[in-house]
């Protein structure tokens, strides 16, 4: 943008602000030329750091695609899981591309799009624990990443079993560290995370032993609850990602195999 157009744009922006017209978030992003995404970076393969400690992953690429569609540059803002919402609320980020489960409880606070990814849940166990399936976890010490979909489901399962112990760790990394040390016997995590961690070769004595019988965990992009214009745009963007095959391409790049279906049969949206 040259100086004149900046000036012209500035005047236009000033007029817009001065008048009753209110630029919504979509306008703000396009106007500022930057899209700031909240991404969780200890959640491979969705988000992690490479050997130079730079952000990489599915969510990172997804944010870049979104920025490209909007015609702006992407800025990845690393947020730990608990920090995603404060970062959005304070306007430090525009959109969360952070593998956020679209629970009804959370939708009271933030605006969720249609699902952009879906996780299946897998059980990963320490080989010494003797856990060979989901049912074997009964009576064992199990853990998961605090506040995630699978953690909530697993904790309820442990309560229903009435024996064993559930431990929530604050990061996915801590869960696998605890698992490899034998602090916990098994964990339920998204199958992508489980595969990425077991395949990374960083851990010995861990194996993915089976699926967890939890519902598919649909995750959504999120932004402020009242930003309908932006949510609308994001919904269309997600649709286009699938339509153009980019979703399958990214899935192949980061996860491998057949990309999960993002639709639910028998109901609208």
């Amino acid at each position: 943008m040259n100086k004149v157009s900046v000036l012209v744009f500035g005047l236009m922006a000033a007029t817009a602000l001065g008048g009753a017209a209110h630029a919504d978030k979509l306008d703000d992003i396009i106007g500022s030329g930057t899209l700031r995404c909240a991404v969780v970076l200890d959640f491979p393969p969705m988000g992690s750091r490479d050997a130079d400690n730079q952000p990489v992953g599915f969510d990172v690429d997804y944010c870049n695609d979104l920025a490209k569609a909007l015609g702006v540059t992407a800025e990845i803002v690393e947020t730990p899981f608990p920090e995603r919402i404060p970062a959005l609320m304070s306007g430090r980020v525009d959109v969360g591309v952070a593998s956020t489960s679209d629970t009804l409880e959370r939708a009271k606070t933030v605006g969720m799009t249609i699902p952009y990814f879906a996780f299946e849940m897998a059980v990963t166990a320490n080989d010494k624990s003797g856990v060979k399936s989901f049912e074997d976890m009964k009576g064992k010490v199990v853990g998961a990443t605090a506040g995630t979909y699978e953690a909530i489901a697993l904790e309820e399962q442990v309560k229903a079993w009435g024996e064993g112990e559930f431990r929530p760790y604050q990061t996915q990394a801590d869960v696998f560290l605890a698992l490899s040390q034998g602090q916990i016997d098994a964990t339920v995590s998204t199958s992508t995370v489980a595969q990425a961690n077991v395949k990374s070769g960083n851990f010995t004595g861990l194996s993915v032993v089976g699926k967890a019988p939890f519902d598919t965990d649909y995750v959504a992009l999120f932004t402020n609850r009242e930003e309908y214009g932006l949510i609308n745009y994001l919904n269309l963007f997600i649709n286009q990602q699938v339509r153009t095959g980019r979703y399958a391409e990214l899935y192949e790049k980061w996860v491998g195999g057949e990309a999960p279906d993002l639709t639910v049969g028998g109901v609208y949206r």
Partner: peptide, 23 residues
Amino acid sequence: VLWLGLIELLRASQILVTRLQEP
């Protein structure tokens, strides 16, 4: 302050632990 996502000494160590698995 690592809780807020600031990469200070302890958080930096945790990131390395995640990658290198030498806690």
